[in-house]
C-alpha cells in the first residue's frame, strides 16, 4: 500500500520525506495489517500510530483512509479534532507542562515560560536538533503535586523555575554521559 501511495507523489513531495519518516511509514504499513478493516477502527488506528511513533505523518493519514475505506477528509477531520494527535515528530525529550486548574493557580504558566526561555522554543514546537519538544496539557491528574510537568514518561512534581533548570541539566548530563560511553566503546 505504501509503495502505491508513494508512486502517486511527485518528485518534490518524495524529496520531502526523510529516511526517518520513511521508516515510520513502513512500520505503520505493517501495523495497520492488524487493524480490522471497518470504519469504527478509525480512532483506534490513529491512536495506535500516535502512541507508537509520537505523531501522525501526512501519508499515514492516507494509509489509514485507504485501509479503512473512508475518505481522507474524514481521517483529517478526526485527526485535527482531538487533542491527542500531533502532526510533527516530537523531540527525543518531549516536555508536557500541565496547565490544569491547580497547576495554573500555582504558576504553571510561569513554568511553561521558563521552559520556552531555556529551550528557545515556543509551546507546540520541537527544537531544531529534535532533542526537545514542548507542549501544554490540560490536567494529568496530579493536582495535589502542582505544578507538575511530564518529561518523557516521568512526572515531575512541585516544579519551580530553578527546577526547570535542573530538569534540563539532568537531561544534558545524561546525554553527555551516553556520548562519552559510546566514545569509550568505540575506542
Amino acid at each position: 500500500m505504501l509503495d502505491r501511495i508513494l508512486a502517486t507523489l511527485d518528485e518534490s513531495e518524495k524529496a520531502a520525506i526523510d529516511e526517518e519518516e520513511l521508516a515510520v511509514l513502513k512500520a505503520v504499513a505493517d501495523e495497520l495489517l492488524s487493524v480490522p478493516q471497518e470504519s469504527l477502527q478509525l480512532l483506534p488506528a490513529l491512536q495506535m500510530i500516535q502512541t507508537k511513533h509520537g505523531y501522525l505523518p501526512r501519508l499515514a493519514l492516507r494509509m489509514v483512509a485507504e485501509h479503512l475505506a473512508v475518505t481522507i477528509g474524514n481521517v483529517y477531520g478526526i485527526a485535527t479534532f482531538y487533542n491527542q494527535f500531533r502532526f510533527n515528530p516530537p523531540g527525543r525529550n518531549p516536555i508536557k507542562v500541565c496547565l490544569g486548574t491547580a497547576c495554573h493557580v500555582k504558576g504553571g504558566e510561569i513554568i511553561l515560560e521558563n521552559f520556552e526561555r531555556r529551550l528557545g522554543i515556543k509551546e507546540n514546537e520541537t527544537s531544531e536538533d529534535r532533542e526537545y519538544s514542548l507542549e501544554r496539557v490540560a490536567c494529568i491528574g496530579c493536582c495535589a503535586l502542582a505544578p507538575a510537568v511530564v518529561v518523557g514518561e516521568k512526572v515531575e512534581a512541585y516544579v519551580t523555575p530553578s527546577k526547570v533548570e535542573g530538569i534540563i541539566t539532568e537531561i544534558e548530563v545524561r546525554k553527555e554521559m551516553a556520548a562519552r560511553e559510546q566514545e569509550k566503546n568505540e575506542d
Binding site: L99, G100, T101, H104, C139, G141, C143
Partner: peptide, 8 residues
C-alpha cells in the same frame, strides 16, 4: 473521559 482540569 474525565476531562475537568482539576479532577482525578
Amino acid at each position: 473521559d474525565e476531562g475537568d482540569p482539576g479532577a482525578y
